[in-house]
Design a protein around this nucleic acid. Structure first.
Length: 865
RNA sequence: GGGUGGUUAGCUCAGUGGUAGAGCGCCUCGUUUACACCGAGGAUGUCGGGGGUUCGAAACCCUCACCGCCCA
C-alpha cells in the first residue's frame, strides 16, 4: 500500500538541498509573471555589495524575506523577489586598487578608462560570490530579473533622476565643508562617517604678541591654527567684550585676524574663546559664513600641510600637530595641556582613516522638500514602519537631514551627467540628451546610495513604463536591518516619492535587528567572534540555520546566535524526518477525504483542533513579521503535540488496526501535510522532501497555504486529551519515583475512567505507560484527574519514595490553596475583581482543597516504614 | 550633551493588570518496535534597587543604579 520511496534512516541535508534547489530553478517556480491575474507581492532584495560574501546578517535578512515570499506564493500571490547587487563605489574601487597595488600600480597608471574596464573584469571573475551562496540558503528569488546598479537600464534611471532633480532645482553645486577621506581621496556624505571617541589632546594657546592684543583659545586641533581666519567669543562674555572688533596676530602665519562675537561659542568650554578655521571645521564654517571670515585651506588632498608658508608645510597633519605644539611651547604660547583628552572624531566608514573636514566644491542634493515628503508618507500612514517603535528614529533623522553631498572623486560608479562648456556653461544630460560639442563631463561619480535609492523601481524598468513596473510597483514590503534605515531606506523613500509621482516605494518597512554572538556581543573581526553561515549550513543544513535565525527574529530587535542553537534546529529537522518515517510505516495517507470531523475520536479531534489553532496563529504572526513567535508555535506543535503526544497515543490504535486506525492514518497524513506546508517558508528543503514523499506530489513550493476554520475545532477534545496527558504524566512520575524501569511492564487497574469520559482511551494510555490489564495484588494507587490507578508492585512499593512524592504534592497544593484563599478572604478583591476572575479563584480553591484531602489520606494509608 | 531601548532561571531571550515561561545548559533514570540529532522524570527566579497607583504589578507611574544603541 505504500509505494512511496522509502526515506533514508537518517536525515542528511546535503543529500537533498542542492538537488531540490536545482529542481525549483528548472521548473521556474520563482519566476514571476507580470501578466498574471494574481495579485502582486513584491520584495526587492537589499542589494549586497558586488564585493561581498554572505555573512550571517545577510542570512537573517534573506531568510525573513524568503519566508514572506514563499508564504505569499503559497497564498496565491504573484510573488516577485527581485535579486541583484550594488556596484559599491568605494568598496569595489578599493578592492581593485589593492590588486593593482600588489603589482606596484595605481589607478592613475592605467588611466580612467582602463581602470574602469579592469573593475568590470574583476566583477565578471570574482564579483557576486554572494549569489551562489544565496542559492545555498534556498532564496526563492527570480533570477531572470537579476539586476546590477551599473546595468545599462539602471544607469539610465540614474541619468533620468539626476536631470529631473536638477531641473527641479533640487541638485546644486557649491563650495561647502564636506567630509574628506585623505586615504580614499574622496568626499563622503555625513553617514559615511563614523564618530568614535578617541584619546586626543586639548591645549590652550595664546595668540598675539606681547604688548599687543592677546587672547587665549583652546583647541583639540592645534595644527589647524595655521588656517585660522578669526577668533570667536560669546557676545555676553565679560572677559572678552573689550576685544570684540579688534584683531590679534596669528603666530607663524603673522596674519592679523579679527576677534568676533557669536552666540555659538560656549563661554564655559575651554577658555571661552575659540579659533575659527572655516575651511576645516563645519561649525567654524557656519560662523565664518555669518561673519565673512576668510576661508583658508591649509592641507592638500592627502591631508599634508600645504600653502601655509610656514615651516610646517609638507608635514602630515598629525606630525604637524606635534610640531606646532612643540613650537608653541618653545615660544611660551601654551597654557594648560590636557592629554589624553577623550573626544569624538569622525572616521571614514570604509577605511577608518580620520576624516578631514574640508572646504570643497561638490554637488549636493537639496533634501528639505524630499525629506519632508519622505517623512509625511510615514506620518500619514501610507508607509508603515514595523516595529513602530523605530519610527521616531526615522523621523528624527529625516526631519533634520542636512543637504546630501553626492559627488565622489572616484572612477567606479555613475559619472555625474553634467557637462561644462568652454565659458563655464553647465549642461545636464538625461538619458536621451547629447552634450554639446566641446563640452567636458564632470570627472566625479555619484555616491553609491544615489543609485541604490532608485532600486525599487529602476529594477522594474523605470524610467520606461514597463509591464513589471505597472504590475509590481509599489513593492509590498522592504525587509532590512535597522542599521541601514538612514543609508538606504530613507533615500529610497525620497527618490521613490519624487520619481513615481508621490507613490511610495513600499507599503511596509519591516526592520529586523543585528545578529550578535551567543553572549549578545557585537560580532567583529577583532573580537574573533564572527561566525560563517556557510560553515553552519555545511554542518547542520540550510533549514537549521534558517529556522534558528527566524526563531530569534523579534521585530527590530538584535538576536544572539550560538552554534548550539543551530544544532538544536537540526535536531528539530531530524525529528520531523523521523516523524514522517513513522507516519509512512503506519500507513498515513493524504488520499481521499478526511473523515467527518464529528465522527472522530477525541484524540484525532484534539490534534486537528490544535493544528487549526496553530495554523491560524502562525499565519497571523507571519503577516505581522513576528517570525520568532511563529517559529515557536510550529516548533511546539510539531514536537510536543504531534510527536510527543499524538504519535504516542496513536500507537495502540495502529497496533489494533480497524476503522479507528484507518481514521488515524488519514488524520495523521493530513496533519503532517498541513504542518509541512506551514513550515515550508521557514525550512523549505526538508519540508519539500518530506511533503513530496508523503503526498507523492510534485512540489510544495506552489502548494496552497493551509487554511484554518475555527468551526472545525472541538474544545471538549482539548479537555479530554489534557486529562489523558495528566494521567499519563502522573503514572510516569509514579513509576519513576518507584524506580520502575521504563521498559518494565506493570499490572494496573484503572477505576473511574468512564465517569470522566475516558473509557475508550484506556488502551491508548496503557500502551504508552506499559500497564497491563491483569488480575493482581494492588498494593498502591494514585489519584489523578478523577481517576484512580491501582498498581500491583508485588508488594515491593518504595514507601519512602512514595511518601516523598506525596509530601511534595501536598506542599504544592497547600501553597496554591493558600494564594487562592488569601484572595477570596480579601474583601477588596471580592468586591472589585471581575466575575470570571473570582470564579476562577473559587474553582482553584475548591480543587486545591480536594487535592489536599486526597493526598493527606493517601499519606495516611501508607504503611509505616 | 540630546534621544532611545534594556535590566526576568547558569546563558540567550519571550511575556503590555489575575498562580512566573521557552530554547540551550544542569541532575536522575532509560537502547520501549519513528527518532540517543532520542525518551521519561526532576532542580533552578524576593522578574535591577526604592517608592507609588491598584482588590491584585514582571507588566502602569515616579526615582535611583547599571548596560546598550542612535544622533551630535
Amino acid at each position: 500500500m505504500n509505494e512511496r520511496p522509502e526515506l533514508a534512516a537518517a536525515f542528511t541535508p546535503a543529500d537533498i538541498e542542492g538537488v531540490l534547489y536545482q529542481k525549483w530553478i528548472d521548473a521556474s517556480y520563482f519566476t514571476a509573471d507580470a501578466k498574471s491575474e494574481k495579485p502582486p507581492f513584491t520584495i526587492v532584495i537589499p542589494p549586497p555589495n558586488v564585493t561581498g560574501s554572505l555573512h550571517i546578517g545577510h542570512a537573517l535578512d534573506h531568510t525573513l524575506q524568503d519566508i514572506l515570499i514563499r508564504m505569499k506564493r503559497m497564498k496565491g500571490f504573484e510573488a516577485l523577489w527581485l535579486p541583484g547587487m550594488d556596484h559599491a563605489g568605494i568598496a569595489t574601487q578599493n578592492v581593485v586598487e589593492k590588486q593593482l597595488a600588489a603589482q606596484g600600480l595605481s589607478r592613475h597608471d592605467l588611466g580612467r578608462e582602463k581602470f574602469v574596464e579592469k573593475v568590470w573584469e574583476w566583477k565578471a571573475e570574482s564579483g557576486g560570490a554572494i549569489l551562489a551562496q544565496m542559492k545555498r540558503l534556498g532564496d526563492s528569488v527570480d533570477w531572470s530579473r537579476e539586476a546590477f546598479t551599473m546595468d545599462a537600464n539602471l544607469s539610465e534611471a540614474v541619468l533620468e533622476i539626476f536631470k529631473r532633480l536638477y531641473d527641479s532645482g533640487l541638485i546644486y553645486r557649491a563650495e561647502r565643508i564636506i567630509n574628506w577621506c585623505p586615504r580614499c581621496l574622496t568626499a563622503l556624505s555625513d553617514i559615511e562617517v563614523d564618530h568614535k571617541d578617541i584619546e586626543g589632546e586639548f591645549v590652550q594657546i595664546t595668540y598675539g604678541d606681547e604688548g599687543e592684543n592677546q587672547i587665549s583659545i583652546a583647541t583639540t586641533r592645534p595644527e589647524t591654527m595655521l588656517g585660522d581666519g578669526a577668533v570667536a567669543v560669546n557676545p555676553d562674555d565679560d572677559r572678552y567684550k573689550h576685544l570684540i572688533g579688534t584683531s590679534v596676530k596669528l603666530p607663524y602665519v603673522n596674519r592679523m585676524i579679527p576677534i568676533i562675537a557669536d552666540e555659538l561659542v560656549d563661554p564655559e568650554f575651554g577658555t571661552g574663546a575659540v579659533k575659527v578655521t572655516a575651511a576645516h571645521d563645519p561649525n567654524d564654517f557656519e560662523m565664518a559664513m555669518r561673519h565673512n571670515v576668510p576661508m583658508v585651506i591649509i592641507m592638500n588632498e592627502h591631508a599634508v600641510m600645504a600653502g601655509t608658508n610656514t615651516q610646517f608645510d609638507g608635514m602630515d597633519r598629525f606630525d604637524a600637530r606635534r610640531a606646532v605644539v612643540e613650537q608653541l611651547r618653545a615660544d611660551g604660547r601654551i597654557g594648560w595641556e590636557k592629554r589624553p583628552y577623550m573626544h569624538s572624531v569622525g572616521h571614514c566608514s570604509r577605511c577608518e582613516t580620520v576624516v578631514e573636514p574640508r572646504l570643497s566644491k561638490q554637488w549636493f542634493v537639496k533634501v528639505a522638500p524630499l525629506a519632508k515628503a519622505a517623512g509625511d508618507a510615514v506620518r500619514d500612514g501610507r508607509v508603515k514602519i514595523e516595529p513602530e517603535e523605530l519610527a521616531p528614529r526615522y523621523f528624527d533623522w529625516i526631519d533634520n537631514m542636512h543637504d546630501w553631498c553626492i559627488s565622489r572623486q572616484l572612477w567606479w560608479g555613475h559619472r555625474i551627467p553634467v557637462y561644462y562648456g568652454p565659458n563655464g556653461e553647465v549642461v545636464v544630460c538625461g538619458p536621451n540628451d547629447v552634450p554639446p560639442a566641446g563640452y567636458e563631463q564632470d570627472p566625479d561619480v555619484l555616491d553609491t546610495w544615489f543609485s541604490s535609492a532608485l532600486w525599487p523601481f529602476s529594477t522594474l524598468g523605470w524610467p520606461n513604463q514597463t509591464a513589471d513596473l505597472t504590475k509590481f510597483y509599489p513593492t509590498s514590503v522592504l525587509v532590512t536591518g535597522y542599521d541601514i534605515l538612514f543609508f538606504w531606506v530613507a533615500r529610497m523613500m525620497m527618490w521613490g516619492l519624487f520619481a513615481m509621482d508621490g507613490v511610495q516605494p513600499f507599503h511596509t518597512i519591516a526592520l529586523h535587528g543585528l545578529v550578535r554572538d551567543k553572549f549578545g556581543k557585537k560580532m567583529s573581526k577583532s573580537k574573533g567572534n564572527v561566525v560563517d553561515p556557510i560553515e553552519f549550513m555545511d554542518k547542520y543544513g540550510s533549514d537549521a540555520l534558517r529556522f534558528t535565525l527566524a526563531r530569534g527574529a523579534n521585530p527590530g530587535a538584535d538576536q544572539a546566535l550560538a552554534e548550539e542553537w543551530i544544532a538544536g534546529a537540526r535536531n528539530f529537522a531530524t525529528k520531523l524526518w523521523n516523524a514522517t518515517r513513522f507516519a509512512n510505516m503506519n500507513g498515513a495517507t493524504t488520499e481521499g477525504n478526511l473523515p467527518a470531523f464529528d465522527s472522530l475520536d477525541d484524540i484525532n479531534k484534539w490534534i486537528l483542533t490544535r493544528l487549526d489553532e496553530t495554523v491560524a496563529d502562525v499565519d497571523q504572526y507571519l503577516e505581522k513579521f513576528e517570525f520568532a513567535k511563529a517559529c515557536e508555535l510550529i516548533y511546539h506543535f510539531a514536537w510536543d503535540d504531534l510527536c510527543d503526544w499524538y504519535l504516542e497515543l496513536t500507537k495502540s490504535s495502529f497496533a489494533k488496526g480497524g476503522t479507528g486506525a484507518a481514521d488515524t492514518q488519514r488524520v495523521l497524513g493530513h496533519v503532517l501535510d498541513q504542518l509541512l506546508r506551514l513550515m515550508h517558508p521557514i525550512m523549505p528543503f526538508i519540508s519539500e522532501a518530506l511533503w513530496c514523499n508523503l503526498t507523492g506530489k510534485e512540489t510544495l513550493v506552489t502548494a496552497a497555504w493551509p487554511k484554518f476554520d475555527p468551526s472545525q475545532r472541538d474544545e471538549s477534545s482539548l479537555v479530554a486529551v489534557s486529562k489523558v496527558q495528566e494521567i499519563i504524566t502522573e503514572i510516569r512520575r509514579f513509576r519513576n519515583d518507584q524506580g520502575i524501569k521504563t521498559s518494565a511492564r506493570v499490572v494496573a487497574r484503572f477505576n473511574g475512567m468512564s465517569d470522566v469520559g475516558l473509557a475508550s482511551y484506556e488502551d491508548a494510555i496503557r500502551f504508552v505507560v506499559r500497564c497491563d490489564n491483569n488480575e493482581g495484588n494492588f498494593t498502591s494507587k494514585i489519584d489523578v484527574a478523577g481517576v484512580t490507578v491501582e498498581f500491583d508492585l508485588s508488594g515491593a512499593i518504595d514507601v519512602k519514595a512514595e511518601r516523598a512524592r506525596l509530601t511534595k504534592d501536598l506542599a504544592a497544593a497547600e501553597k496554591d490553596r493558600n494564594t487562592a484563599k488569601v484572595k477570596i478572604e480579601n474583601e477588596g478583591f471580592m468586591a472589585k475583581a471581575p466575575m470570571e476572575v473570582v470564579q476562577e479563584i473559587r474553582q482553584r480553591l475548591a480543587d486545591t482543597t480536594a487535592d489536599i484531602e486526597r493526598i493527606t489520606s493517601a499519606l495516611a494509608t501508607l504503611p509505616v516504614e
